[in-house]
Amino acid sequence: MEGGQMTELPNSTDRKMGLVIDLDTCVGCHACVISCKGWNTENYGAPLSDQDPYGADPSGTFLNRVHSYEVQPAPCESQPDPAAQLIHFPKSCLHCEDAPCVTVCPTGASYKRTEDGIVLVNEDHCIGCGLCAWACPYGARELDLAAGVMKKCTLCVDRIYNENLPEEDRIPSCVRTCPAGARHFGDLGDPDSDVSKLVAERGGIDLMPEMGTKPVNKYLPPRPKDQIEAQAAPLAPLLKPVAEDAGGFMGWLDKALDKLPGGTN
């Protein structure tokens, strides 16, 4: 559907391609942000421009950004003084089934693909009115100030079907680059796909479900970290002195030093 047609949402899509983001695993390194910017600034559509990049007030267009949140659990009987958790939170387009950004578009530039559910912008038809960004609750769309058109995550549509790339690279750039394995890509419309199983197993959630957008992307909640001291324990043996009962020259030196006045620590 390349322009010239109505920005109506398809009733259903053949597949629901999307991302599953594991908040338990994400370490907040921002590698996905950089690889996304790198791939998408030189491939599909207008480059992702920066304004005043080396000046006093730099800003630029990004399709993926990583927030960090602190969650403070409420005290309870077993945890009277629970430790706060830091959760790194990557956020990009969720390729919603009921994408409000598509229907508000006055020109037909925004559309949702019937074959795989990817939400895209036809940049040749976009007038840069910004209404789609207003309609998105997730902040997934950013108007590029140099090109004057709306930019958003394409799910690396120019990688995932690209037969010029080795097969292992035919996944979104952010997923390919994530060093922690916190990002997964697949068909969330197929209940037997790896990503669907992962979501079912880990209780994947929607962001702002009350908005009625039916996001395709899911977030896997962090596993409970109510025993932080116990979790640190596996590392404890490694922190102990390596040789406590030294013999030979080291043993003699140890004893000799013990005999000197001044005590030990």
Binding site: L23, H67, S68, Y69, E70, V71, Q72, P73, A74, P82, A84, Q85, I87, F89, P137, I205, D206, L207, M208, P209, E210, Y219, P221, P222
Partner: peptide, 13 residues
């Protein structure tokens, strides 16, 4: 609701 983390405690940016 924005982060989906509300059930775990108080969320702060």
């Amino acid at each position: 609701t924005a982060t989906g983390l509300g059930s775990r405690g108080t969320v702060r940016a």
